[in-house]
Design a protein around this nucleic acid. Structure first.
Ligand code: NAD
Ligand code: NAD
Lengths: 231, 231
DNA sequence: GTATAATTGTGAATTTATGAACAAATTATA
DNA sequence: TATAATTTGTTCATAAATTCACAATTATAC
């Protein structure tokens, strides 16, 4: 019923609104939010509509109650825990940002198969042995697992997480893991993202050079198609 | 004309096919690739069609030439360079993975405003002063910039990158930067992604518990709507 | 107060992405 | 060599996401 895209935008709105509130702003209009995010005002209004929150015509949305509506919608009534598997380069960066930083949602435990890491604490988060996975997940009541290990181990660790009661996985490994359809998976594939940016960067450059050429040579506007981008 | 989604999938196909080739596989059929990625075969055929490459009915695609077609389409004829701004927790992880690892596309230089980092080399990549940004970008002919700094500095650094000739930006900061429409931007917003996974994890759990309840109480199948997911 | 200007909420239109289905092509097989 | 079995390329259909556009509503100016 509610789409992933909408959830992502609601999370964004919240972050922006929290900032604006500390700056003393009390109300906001759909086109202001839209401009900050480079989207259309109708999109903002539609998303907020789905919350059940109503704005005031000719005046906009009151930030305080809108934030409450978003929190009400996005957040769990209880603080929510996540666990991280793989305390390597990426895992460490994630711990630096998400280990107990927010009360509402945070990484509460980490795991690694490397004995050198087990028992140590990284950015305030303890690293456990893989043998303790199920026990710790149950104890911390975690429902989200973050995979920051190489593709090789990803499927088997994913299976373990699911067995232990995890129902959402954030997967940074390049492998597309298979899970029961009662589990939500998000693949963050930084390599393909990097390649994509590189691809479009090149196209943009070509397009711009083509435009320059056309201007220099004062040709009439030919039927060049513009690039499709997400801006 | 070609969509971002298609580019992402082509990059995925390539990675899988490279692996399969070293395992000795010579041909592949659309449904095999589709199964590995949890998508539909028609999607695979459509994507490959856009490359201009043709498969063989009743036999599939020959992996070697297909890989060549993909490389031809996705890659620059010359090796392509990227620069990273912000050698913090995340920046370091990115350097560990992308600093000169591939010949075709790699991070060739890093920048940080912290004097303690300037002049040092991280994972084989030299960190320069922000003052050298333009010079190094021009020298390395980089067209991609990666932002791994806090939101505060993101807009001004982005402007600098664009001034220096960058035409693609991979932005890890929470700020939605503004760029001319001749520049491609990809926002990787790990906080919102994390919140999204948490949100759907919770819904999944509820949904599953609801199903269990229904089974235990042997009610007739009510009109419960299923969740929309991306699996 | 009344008029004016502005902004919301939302149905309808549009665009974009995905999926189903089938003729055409090709291989394998009898 | 002919037939059967498959898989591709692609058209047409469906679904999802976005955008338009405008009536309804409210604030503000006069
Ligand atoms: N670092 C990046 O910027 C980056 C970029 C693109 C993709 N990735 C992907 O993210 C994942 C992690 O990357 P990284 O750079 O942190 O790798 P890394 O090698 O630095 O760290 C991997 C960690 O996972 C642990 N590990 C390995 N297999 C395990 C298993 N089966 N169970 C438990 N722990 C295990 C290792 O001991 C190590 O600590 C990899 O799949 C990588 O391809 C990372
Ligand atoms: N680490 C994560 O897992 C994670 C998760 C979500 C979001 N992010 C975002 O990614 C970005 C980087 O995160 P991090 O954890 O690496 O932060 P960090 O604080 O560890 O590193 C930031 C680095 O950028 C440098 N820097 C800051 N301002 C700069 C400027 N104007 N010019 C040049 N260099 C500058 C700092 O000196 C530091 O080295 C942040 O915007 C953060 O919100 C990171």
């Amino acid at each position: 019923m509610i789409s992933e895209k909408t959830i992502e935008r609601l999370s964004l709105y919240r972050r922006i609104l929290q900032q604006l509130r500390v700056e003393g702003k009390e109300t906001i209009m759909s086109h202001e939010l839209a401009d900050l995010l480079h989207i259309k005002p109708a999109q903002v209004r539609r998303d907020i509509m789905q919350l059940g929150y109503s704005g005031i015509p000719n005046s906009g949305y009151r930030i305080r109650p809108l934030l409450e509506s978003i929190a009400n919608f996005l957040d769990s009534p209880l603080p929510q825990s996540a666990v991280l598997v793989g305390v390597g380069h990426l895992g460490l960066a994630l711990l630096a940002n998400f280990a107990g930083r927010w009360r509402q949602l945070a990484i509460r435990a980490a795991f690694d198969k490397d004995p050198a890491k087990v028992g140590h604490t990284f950015h305030g988060c303890r690293c456990y042995s893989m043998l303790d996975l199920q026990k710790v997940i149950v104890e911390t009541k975690s429902i989200v697992g973050i995979l920051a290990i190489p593709g090789e181990g990803a499927q088997s660790v994913s299976d373990l997480l699911v067995q232990s009661g995890i129902s959402g996985i954030l997967n940074f490994s390049p492998l597309r893991i298979k899970v029961p359809n009662s589990v939500f998976v998000e693949h963050v594939d930084l390599s393909t993202t990097f390649e994509k940016v590189s691809f479009f960067a090149r196209r943009m450059k070509h397009y711009v050079e083509e435009e320059k050429w056309k201007i220099e040579h004062e040709t009439d506007e030919g039927e060049y198609e513009t690039l499709t981008t997400n801006q």
